[in-house]
Design a protein around this nucleic acid. Structure first.
Lengths: 270, 270
DNA sequence: GACACGAGTCCCATATCCTGAGAAGCTTTA
DNA sequence: TAAAGCTTCTCAGGATATGGGACTCGTGTC
């Protein structure tokens, strides 16, 4: 996950180093001192020091009372701006809330980026085992319901590009391990209209997802419902899928992708 | 607001430039092309190009289908990690929801940074004029109820440091304009136990705030209720303040700052 | 109380890394 | 078809970041 090797034709050493510092602080559970940063990244301490001072001036990092460094709130600001430009999140939230109220399980909103899905939002039911997912984090497409939901409805060409980039990492014994298996799964997903992750990412966790389609009928995001396998049973899937379909329909309307008047010829109606 | 002059003893030109690019994209309503970035920042186009490519590799910016640049989702990830370390936000949320249900006005959760308050979270009532505040944004302390709430309960020494750094920018004719006036206002705030922003930041907007105190009885954050002056009337202030006090009390308990058993000798009881 | 040690801060000469001129693609407009 | 505008790419020179090292401060050890 940590891409220490900043390959790529264009290079600005100082930037790579600065982001390495931010990465390090992001991964770390606790704030880090100058010496720790310097040695972890193999930077001379005076180099590390200068970077940290500059980052601090930009409020990208801040110091705890004990003088150690952690991520700064400026990043929080940037992050919110970044997501705002999508504005999908704001509009989707009420629909997600309703979905959670109906299903009493956790709902996620995700978008695709490269060959990973990023969690844009998460709503948890009042009483539930807290899920470990974190808004802002990302997971591989091949082992998540949201990933498969988006992938399945992407135009063949783009889907292939994504699949090409997947490293088929295994998480459980059910994780899809080959491009071939993934393709059959995609076919299945298209047929039934929703994607399922049956303990493929985490033992005991079952998820079901449906894509959000834009005006051009391209998937721009996906919504999922996740819960422990004993609650999210095979029998319940169609009913949950139904709630999901209503939910994404509402989101699409709110985003102005489809008019609310007539039922759209939805992907899942095919 | 835009600090084009990157003064400070430590300097890494490349970093200042990179952050200037991010700033620019953050401020911009629409994605920008390479040429626009280059001319706005007075960078040579090939320099701007290199920066954007590197930033893209780090997913700090991304390209729209038309090839223009906007902030990338990596920032969203970093941003979430940044506030996660506070974890105040997660814990405070249920209490804020209750507060909003009780008052039917918008609630904000803020922390102090330098001489500005940063909006960590915002909850809006079901039906209300949408407030223009944005989570992640910051405002000066001297003209916000949250700023004054925190400031008033800070140890004298630290409060002075903050006040020293304030540039007393005016927003309305009621904005506090001098350090002296601010100090009297602080005194008043301490006496009554809550801070008020009476159209000092925006005409027609009245806010009331109370600090969240940690185990050492230091203010770490503040919660506010904001609404149009005709609804948030002078008569209602004490009642709203009461809800606020209950709210921050709940937050303090959840954070483990105070035990829920006995009533704490609260700052406002003095 | 003296000493050693580690962590952070600061300065400066040097080599490295970034810069920006410019040329060459590519796309849009006239 | 030409021209203008935007983006991509290359390269040599010199501004700029680098890291050695000195200095300070705080903490633990004897």
């Amino acid at each position: 996950m940590r891409d220490a090797a900043p390959q790529g034709t264009y290079k600005v050493q100082a930037l790579d180093r600065a982001f390495a510092v931010l990465d390090l602080l992001a991964e770390s559970e606790t704030p880090l001192g100058l010496a720790q940063v310097a040695s972890s990244l193999q930077l001379h301490k005076s180099t590390a020091h200068r970077f940290l001072m500059v980052l601090e001036r930009h409020r990208m990092v801040e110091r705890t009372t004990s003088g150690k460094f952690r991520l700064g709130l400026r990043l929080f600001d940037f992050g919110n701006r970044a997501i705002e430009q999508y504005d999908l999140r704001d509009r989707a939230q009420p629909h997600l809330r309703r979905l959670v109220a109906e299903t009493e399980e956790t709902a996620h909103l995700c978008v695709l980026e490269a060959s990973r899905v990023i969690y844009i939002d998460k709503i948890e039911p009042a009483r539930s085992v807290r899920m470990i997912t974190r808004v802002g984090a990302s997971n591989p497409v091949h082992c998540t319901s949201v990933g498969k939901a988006i992938l399945a409805f992407l135009p063949e060409e783009r889907a292939n590009e994504v699949v090409k980039r997947i490293r088929f990492e295994r998480f459980t014994h059910r994780t899809i391990a080959t491009a071939e298996a993934l393709r059959t799964e995609m076919e299945k997903t298209r047929r039934r209209g929703y994607a399922v992750d049956d303990e493929e990412f985490e033992e005991g966790l079952r998820c079901i997802a449906v894509p959000v389609l834009d005006a051009q009928r391209q998937p721009v995001a996906a919504v999922s419902v996740s819960g422990p396998s004993f609650r999210v049973t095979a029998q319940k899937l169609p009913s949950i899928a139904n709630h999901l379909l209503q939910c994404v329909r509402g989101i699409s309307v709110d985003m102005g992708y489809i008019s609310s008047g007539r039922a759209p010829r939805a992907a899942w109606s095919a």
